[in-house]
Write a protein that binds this DNA or RNA. Structure first.
Lengths: 218, 218
DNA sequence: GTCTATAGTCTGATAGAC
DNA sequence: GTCTATCAGACTATAGAC
């Protein structure tokens, strides 16, 4: 059983650690800096967590469910285009609400996914494959414009997380203005134009993507 | 004047350092690992470069021109859609040819651009603003579908660099297959649908983006 | 130019008093 | 539970022989 002060201090540590790990990477982060940010002493950090590694792992574990959930929420019974647009908007909202978590994740991937390999090759891969099959069915039914399902999913990750991961760059380029100003309507426009099934008359100028067949089973 | 062996060793060091810095970040990299990868002793590294920081800076300096050039190459006299598609393809080719450079850059931005702030707020920002004005003119002339120029540029950076920066994740999700397989035709499709000016009849279903006015001057 | 040896610093983790 | 003090290892960088 954990006391009130224990939960409070664990929370302080994780909050501080998220700041430091997300902006410096695992090796760039130091316990000294985390301790200072948490307002605790370094030995006290190690009273609550066994090691620097354990703090980092706790952050990742907290993150993984959050990371899968927006993709899980896609409803096979819903309207295809509306479902994918809603998924994109959830991911964009996550970039707004949890930019540090996005950068923590990006740091891990950039360094070869040393601690996330199992998660990605397991739960995430399974879920992505399932969703790609769903999208391929929607395309086959003519309810979405022809598109490669996997690259579509990757594009949503890329375009939404970019606003969190490259926040520093966008701020410097935009000067004072909000880095995400205009992102919502831009992405709405982009995915509307990308996904709208070609109207009965007036064909789509783009060639259909070569490989949807891969996911057409199931 | 530098001898043949000096040029060779500097090259070996920079090549090894690019491997290590791009996959571990600045603080995660160690001179021991770079020395081992270069086949030289650690003091010998520091005979050629003043410090770890100096090696890193040399890599970034080499990178910056390469980073600007594809954006510079956009031709104001060319066909708008073709120019932007060609720019996207150049960036995608860079992700294929120079994935380590892309990850080196991403590492720096993720950590708040501590060494790239001046470059981004200066040369890059100036060039981006110039290109956004050009794109805004093209939109105003009806030669491109209505779109926010800055977010268009950001989307190209995001979607192309993603294949280099998140390579580890994509590999794990795709299993054995080439991480970039299908990327070319996907991005061709995406930007064709995004940028094609609406045909005379059969309007675009997307609302025009709110703010192109910002770049309409010039 | 390249090496061995090492100085000096930082960092993760532990010991032990309170 | 929290602290001061400190250890052991890893790290960047330098000294000095060859």
């Amino acid at each position: 059983m954990s006391t009130r002060i224990q939960r409070r201090n664990r929370g302080l540590i994780l909050e501080a650690a998220l700041d430091v790990f997300s902006s410096r990477g695992f090796r760039g982060a130091t316990l000294d800096e985390i301790a200072r940010a948490a307002g605790l002493s370094k030995p006290n950090l190690l009273y609550y967590f066994d090691s620097k590694e354990a703090i980092h792992r706790a952050l990742l574990d907290d993150l993984l469910e959050t990371w899968l959930e927006p993709l899980r929420t896609i409803d096979p019974q819903g309207d295809p285009q509306a479902e994918i647009m809603a998924y994109m908007r959830r991911k964009l909202q996550m970039a707004r609400d949890f930019p540090r978590e996005s950068r923590l994740f990006a740091n891990e991937i950039l360094q070869g996914a040393p601690r996330l390999g199992d998660f990605i090759a397991g739960e995430l891969r399974t879920l992505v494959e399932d969703r790609c099959q769903l999208i391929a069915r929607w395309v086959a039914q003519g309810r979405l414009a022809p598109i490669d399902p996997l690259h579509l999913v990757l594009s949503i990750w890329s375009l939404t997380q970019h606003y969190a991961d490259f926040d520093a760059q966008i701020r410097l380029i935009r000067g004072g203005t909000d880095p995400m100003a205009g992102a919502d309507s831009f992405l709405d426009t982009l995915y509307t134009r990308l996904l709208s099934p070609p109207a009965a008359v007036g064909g789509d100028p783009a060639a259909p993507p070569s490989s949807c067949a891969k996911y057409s089973g199931g």
